[in-house]
Computed example of a mutant assay.
Amino acid sequence: MIEGVLRSRHSSHAAFMGALLMVALSLTMLYIPLHAAAHLATSSRNTGVLTVTGCSYEPTSKGYFTATCRGDFRSDSGAIAAKNVTVSFQRSSDVEITPMAGRQWRAQLRSIDDRNAELVKPQWNIWTLVFIAEAVLGAWLIAQAVWLSRRLSG
């Protein structure tokens, strides 16, 4: 009789923990894409296109080249249009950093008055990570639901 009571308590505790885990997984699956979208919206306020007018570069002591390029920046929203914006970065050879005038790069300014841009990496990377995380959490949630249904029916 005592064994039956202990099994019953253990089974109900396991079912409760399983259900709690399912709720946590579901909330996490909702949070991840919403957080990623908010992050992208915040980071893309001053993002746009830098049209290169010219670059200069200097070799560094370790065999790399530091490029300083100038150009005209226009934000995606059209709210910012700035001339003589600079962007600096390093490359392993001068061939990679000697662009033709008119080449366009994705860039971002920190503020409306800023004239030093940063190059923007493609945003598909974050969505790829979100998709992978969602797939893993979804598979875990399904496995947890199957486990819980078997636990409750057995």
Rank of each mutant, 00 (worst) to 15 (best):
C55V: 07
R110L: 05
Q90E: 13
A143F: 06
L141T: 03
M29C: 15
V136H: 06
H10S: 07
L27D: 08
S92R: 14
N125W: 14
L119S: 14
R9I: 14
G54D: 00
F65G: 04
R45E: 03
L21T: 10
H10N: 11
Q144L: 05
A41I: 00
K121V: 12
A37C: 04
T53I: 09
Q123T: 13
A24W: 03
I2Y: 06
V87P: 01
E3R: 10
L148N: 04
S61K: 03
F16M: 10
E118A: 12
G102Q: 09
G63Y: 01
H10V: 08
V146S: 00
G138I: 12
D114C: 04
N46S: 15
G4D: 06
S88R: 15
V5L: 11
V95S: 14
W147I: 03
S77C: 02
Q90C: 08
L6Y: 07
A19G: 11
P122Y: 04
N46F: 05
V136M: 13
G78C: 10
L34D: 01
F16N: 02
V146H: 08
T28Q: 03
G71F: 03
P99C: 04
L34F: 07
V85C: 07
A41V: 06
A41E: 10
T47C: 10
S8G: 09
W105D: 00
I126P: 00
Q144Y: 06
G71A: 02
A117T: 07
A24M: 10
M17A: 09
H13R: 11
F73C: 07
T86H: 04
D114G: 04
L109Y: 01
A143G: 15
T68K: 05
L34R: 15
L148P: 06
V120Y: 09
A38M: 07
R106Y: 05
S92E: 05
R110I: 08
D76M: 05
Q123M: 08
K83Y: 07
G48W: 00
D76K: 04
R115C: 03
T128A: 14
V5R: 03
T98W: 00
A81S: 14
A145D: 03
L129C: 10
M1A: 06
L21S: 11
Y31F: 14
L141M: 10
L34Q: 10
A82Q: 10
V49S: 02
R45K: 15
S12N: 06
A101M: 09
V136W: 08
S43W: 07
G154W: 11
Q90M: 13
I112Y: 12
R74N: 08
